[in-house]
Nucleic acid binder design. Structure first.
Lengths: 342, 342
DNA sequence: ATGAAAGCGCTAACAC
DNA sequence: GTGTTAGCGCTTTCAT
């Protein structure tokens, strides 16, 4: 077995008996090539298993046909889902996807400092993290299109859900069941600005307000994102003199952690306390968790379409918000002592 | 705000008062440049915020500094974890990562058909899927280095766990607890060849054999990979005249599904039946699932190191197997009617 | 130690 | 419809 020699377009042109220019035009399906010629060129290319050199092509053309994707977490379900949707549409559009993981603040500083994607891509999509002003200035240096997914953005086109709405769907469900002592476990990502969970938080307060329920500060605990952290938060809530009858968690992972604490404390869900999350993580279905579903892959796809549109020079929507939906399963029920309100 | 003009090496050379050749040598830290000159060039580059054009550089040099990663699933925890580990070491080595999702067989055919990575990368790493002979031939054509992660491979260097060993750790635990009617829920990935779960399956039979336990074909059910499928399998097992007292699931996700069926059937875990999985998926910790841990990110990292080594022309290990470890939590206990053996 | 010049493989004017 | 000819921005002999 031996490695095939790199076949160049010159070889193809020669074999097809045309000039390189014609070969190039034919291969690129450009106008102005006789059908017969085109066929001949394609056959020649086929026979030689010719593949363009993307480097040479990019160099000559000035576009890379690549897009960078910047993510704060790769293996967290939400981000992986966005990535999956994004990859699919980029691939269909013939664009390659360069992955950059920017985990903690240091990674992040370095990324914007060195701008490793510079000159390597035609566009970049940032997944679910806010880009501050200074960082925007750096991006500017790259001179490429930018789109954001999984969160709102003031400067770039973006796709996201309405977090406040999602939160209200979750809270509304709890309120509707008759709960009056509802706790919130708010989750923040230690390496990202706080803004992310703002919508989900304010939904708590506005829902309570709308229902005429008082806010009890003891009932809201803020932790870092993650299941184990959710468990810790629940432990704290369980230590209260008057524990909640329901808890609204900012995410399913957090909710799952809370459920573990409940289970370990010998409490039943939803008998003793109801739990609702947000996301509809695949696991939610397996633990029968009531939650609010957000379409994750779809958000990735839409972001992908935005990128593709931008690169084609089209005008794209400045933002699209995809709908969320309450999914009632078995972790929520009316509180013990009070029936559902009238 | 305006986009910076693309600065070329010619600009740098001019500003430093040297020829392009020297500028190139200096910037690449090549030998044969006076220290003073080098400094001058670097400063010029700095002042102009010069960044090489990777296209031009690759074209001239013949290497892309990019590696392709081919994955069958992006958002499944295992793959995302591998990806995360891989990305980290590639990034440290200054290599860019091109992501290709090859989901079903059709994607796959198309991938190998079009060989999108051809001429675009210096190496490719295939995550957890077997590459058949024809596909190997195509890879060969690309003339790039290849490494596999998350599964054994006959042809390429690879990193993986010992699936049989992992299975035996799980089964051994059940046997040790005194279980005699142990079921297995085997999971296959519909779009991947069967080989993947062979180790985990044969562990079942060999463990049973070693323990002097008889095989009851009714106790093994094979389903597609996934939580809901695991639930279905459990339903079937529950319908048996003599249901199992323990179940060994090929993965945590499947185990989780099984637990749902158990819960819905009003059975308690581990009171009525014990459940053990494999993987130590992050969720396992949250549901207190007993399982066998495999280091996922680490496998990705090792694969990354293999790639880097290969590209440096070093000789790399043909394979590395990372250890797995039983993690006992709360879904396993001795069977009801029999105490732990002697 | 440095410079001149020839490519790397392709695309895009511009002629014909 | 097809061919000629410049580059695209860099690396690398080969001279000097």
């Amino acid at each position: 077995m031996t490695v095939a020699r790199q076949v160049s377009m010159a070889d193809v042109a020669r074999r097809a008996g045309v000039s390189m220019a014609t070969a190039s035009r034919a291969l690129n399906n450009a106008a102005g090539v006789a059908e017969a010629t085109r066929t001949r060129v394609f056959r020649a290319a086929e026979e030689l298993s010719y593949v363009v050199s993307p480097e040479a092509s990019s160099l000559a053309r000035g576009a890379t046909q690549r897009v960078a994707v910047v993510v704060p977490h790769i293996s967290r379900w939400f981000f992986a889902g966005l990535l999956e949707g994004l990859e699919a549409v980029l691939r269909d559009a013939g664009l390659d996807l360069l992955l950059y993981h920017v985990g903690d603040m240091e990674d992040r500083r370095e990324f914007f400092d060195r701008l490793p994607a510079r000159r390597k891509v035609d566009a970049v999509v940032v997944l679910a993290f806010p880009v501050d002003e200074e960082e925007q200035r750096r991006f500017q240096l790259m001179g490429v299109d930018i789109v954001a997914a999984g969160g709102q953005h003031a400067t770039y086109p973006y796709v996201c859900i309405d977090d406040e709405m999602a939160g209200r769907q979750a809270m509304g469900h709890l309120v509707h069941l008759g709960h009056e002592r509802i706790a919130m476990i708010a989750a923040v990502d230690p390496d990202q600005p706080v803004s992310l969970q703002q919508g989900r938080s304010s939904a708590y307060y506005s829902s309570l307000h709308d229902a005429g329920l008082a806010v009890d500060d003891d009932l809201v605990v803020t932790v870092n994102w993650g299941g184990p952290e959710g468990a810790l938060a629940m432990d704290r809530l369980l230590g209260l003199r008057r524990p909640p009858t329901a808890v609204y968690a900012h995410s399913d992972e957090v909710a799952l952690g809370a459920m573990r604490s409940l289970r370990r404390a010998g409490l039943s869900v939803p008998g003793d306390v109801s739990v609702v999350g947000i996301d509809d993580h695949p696991v939610a279905e397996l633990v029968d968790l009531t939650t609010v579903r957000q379409p994750v892959e779809q958000q990735g796809e839409i972001a992908g379409e935005m990128v593709v549109g931008l690169l084609r020079g089209e005008v794209v929507q400045r933002s699209v918000t995809v709908p969320t939906q309450l999914v009632v399963r078995s972790t929520t029920a009316p509180p013990r002592r009070a029936g559902p309100r009238a």
